[in-house]
């Protein structure tokens, strides 16, 4: 193992040799990083700068010789498209809460009780293949003559109108199934670090099961829960296909869909980009929060 460096007073001497070596090393490092940095700048940072730039121009005048700079797009969002912003946040919040409420017990059982964990992990990758196939499949599952139709008919829900009768619920469900694995993995990581003997200790000290949960388990797994919630939230902010296939006009107001329609169908690049900037700001705020709370998971 590395020696602990001991501090002893010594007359100062020039350390030019060390410094130049460090510089050379740093330069090599930057060289190794260069391809990644160049790619990220050209295809991620610069496009986002363009996005901001375009959002400050009227319609598609950015591509003309003299673009017309204006704040109108943001004014328009404030005046007319605020419900779109709220729908985006509302759906993301509800879907992430759904994940939390159903994902926490799932993670707990998985960590403490289940032997066939790898099977669960493997099956859990299906939603990760993307919301497109998932939503597509959910349409079939809850559609007419779907595999669950007899079940719904049995409990008195009309399976033929199910898909269209509950657009918001279906949308939230679809979003939640997609992000469920993210929640579970974060809570699993947090719970794995909670020593089971702490639960046993709480029980021997007379705690009831729900007290064990509220006083020991939840406080100790809280950072993972928060990280999981924020990651789910981040994904759900960008939702596109789920409301398109499962929701109605109200859910389809989400920003991703709206900006696609504005920019790519109506060629109002200015407004579409402004929506993109708003969505980006929301997503980055969430990312920033989740990195703050789950310090060390990815960064350092």
């Amino acid at each position: 193992m590395a020696e602990v460096v001991v501090d002893t007073p010594v007359p100062p001497r020039s350390t030019v040799g060390d410094e130049s070596r460090d510089w050379r090393k740093a330069l090599t490092g930057v060289g190794l990083l260069a391809p990644a940095i160049v790619i990220a700048i050209i295809f991620s940072i610069i496009p986002l700068i363009y996005l901001i730039n375009v959002s400050l121009t009227r319609e598609s005048t950015f591509f003309f010789n003299n673009p017309q700079y204006t704040f109108d797009n943001y004014r328009l969002i404030w005046n007319r498209y605020l419900p779109h912003v709220w729908t985006t946040i509302r759906l993301a919040t509800l879907a992430s809460l759904f994940c939390l409420i159903f994902g926490y017990p799932f993670a707990y059982i998985l960590v403490r009780k289940v032997q066939y964990r790898d099977l669960v992990r493997i099956l859990m990758t299906f939603p990760l293949f993307g919301p497109l196939y998932l939503t597509y499949g959910i349409r079939f599952v809850f559609g007419v003559n779907g595999p669950l139709a007899p079940l719904f008919d049995f409990i008195g829900v009309d399976s033929r109108t199910l898909l269209f009768a509950y657009p918001e619920q279906m949308t939230i469900f679809g979003m939640a199934v997609f992000t469920f694995p993210f929640m579970v993995m974060n809570v699993v990581a947090a719970l794995t670090n909670v020593d089971p003997t702490l639960e046993e200790a709480a029980r021997t000290l007379g705690s009831r099961p729900w007290q064990v949960f509220t006083r020991v388990l939840f406080p100790l797994s809280w950072p993972g829960v928060l990280a999981g919630f924020l990651i789910c939230f981040g994904w759900n902010l960008g939702v596109f296909i789920v409301p398109m296939l499962l929701g109605n006009i109200e859910q389809q107001r989400v920003l991703s869909l709206a900006l696609y329609q504005k920019a790519m169908s109506q060629f109002d690049y200015g407004l579409g980009s402004a929506m993109g900037v708003v969505l980006m700001l929301l997503a980055f705020t969430v990312t920033w929060l989740s990195l703050r709370f789950s310090r060390g998971a990815l960064a350092t």
Binding site: E3, V5, V6, D7, T8, V10, R13, T15, D18
Partner: peptide
């Protein structure tokens, strides 16, 4: 061997 201001080997 010196690391910054600290001397590891003198």
């Amino acid at each position: 061997k010196r690391y910054g201001d600290t001397v590891a080997v003198d």
